[in-house]
């Protein structure tokens, strides 16, 4: 229980995010209006997703170097939590897009990229479920995880910059800093990113400990 401090920090940060995010003053901007508060919920989902998927890939690489059940379980659980964050990010983003861009889905390159990214990880889950043997499943899905992540990076970071996007920072739209400069937004935004990401890591942590314990019980029975 000596590592409990970051869990307390997560709870405090998220409480702060929810209260300050909904109650504090936000700048009045045309079109955005009050929906700017979604900044505290939508954007951190993407930060969290990228980081957690990165964890998944790192553990896949570690699995190939050192095949233990622990590495495989963490890679798998992190991919699942990454999907959860991705779905939440898409849903919150669609809600936001409805009020600011007028449509839930407006063929924006970043929206499309996010959807394709999710498809890759759904495929990862399907691939995993099509193997019966544990060792083979772990090795081959680790290979696919690394391969897909290497193909996903250009998608997420290069493609939206080549075409026009409605998202800030692309295709002539002002970047984050143009209206993020408001210090009251930053006061909540950075803790929100940290809080949601830590929550994701916490979920991965609990789930993989649970999974490892379960496998151990199966082995002994």
């Amino acid at each position: 229980m000596k590592n409990i401090w970051w869990k307390i920090l997560t709870v405090l940060l998220l409480l702060f995010t929810v209260f300050a995010g909904l109650m504090s003053d936000v700048p009045r901007l045309a079109i955005l209006n009050e929906t700017i508060r979604n900044l505290y919920f939508h954007v951190p989902m993407w930060f969290g997703m990228i980081l957690i998927l990165l964890i998944s890939v790192v553990y896949s690489i570690r699995y190939l170097r050192n095949p233990t059940i622990k590495n495989d379980v963490i890679a798998h659980e992190a991919a699942k939590v990454g999907i959860l964050f991705g779905v939440l990010g898409i849903v919150t983003g669609m809600e936001w897009a409805k009020f600011t861009w007028g449509e839930y889905w407006s063929n924006d390159p970043k929206q499309n990229a996010a959807a394709i990214g999710l498809l890759i990880y759904f495929a990862y889950i399907v691939l995993r479920s099509s193997f019966a043997e544990q060792q083979q499943r772990a090795r081959i899905s680790a290979v696919y995880n690394i391969f897909a992540f290497a193909a996903l990076i250009p998608l997420l970071f290069i493609l939206p910059r080549l075409t026009d996007s409605l998202h800030p920072g692309n295709g002539g739209n002002p970047g984050f800093n143009a209206y993020d400069l408001d210090s009251s937004l930053r006061m909540v935004f950075y803790p929100a990113v940290l809080g949601w990401t830590l929550l994701g890591i916490w979920i991965v942590n609990v789930r993989s400990r649970f999974e490892i314990l379960r496998q151990r019980i199966y082995e002994t029975v």
Partner: peptide, 27 residues
């Protein structure tokens, strides 16, 4: 190579490859 190791490889081939191919295809 990945799909050939799995059980239902022809379906798997499609779902594994399309998301990876799409950025290339768009460009």
């Amino acid at each position: 190579g990945i799909a050939s190791k799995a059980a239902n490889s022809s379906t798997l081939m499609a779902i594994l490859s399309f998301p990876v191919i799409v950025p290339m295809l768009l460009m």
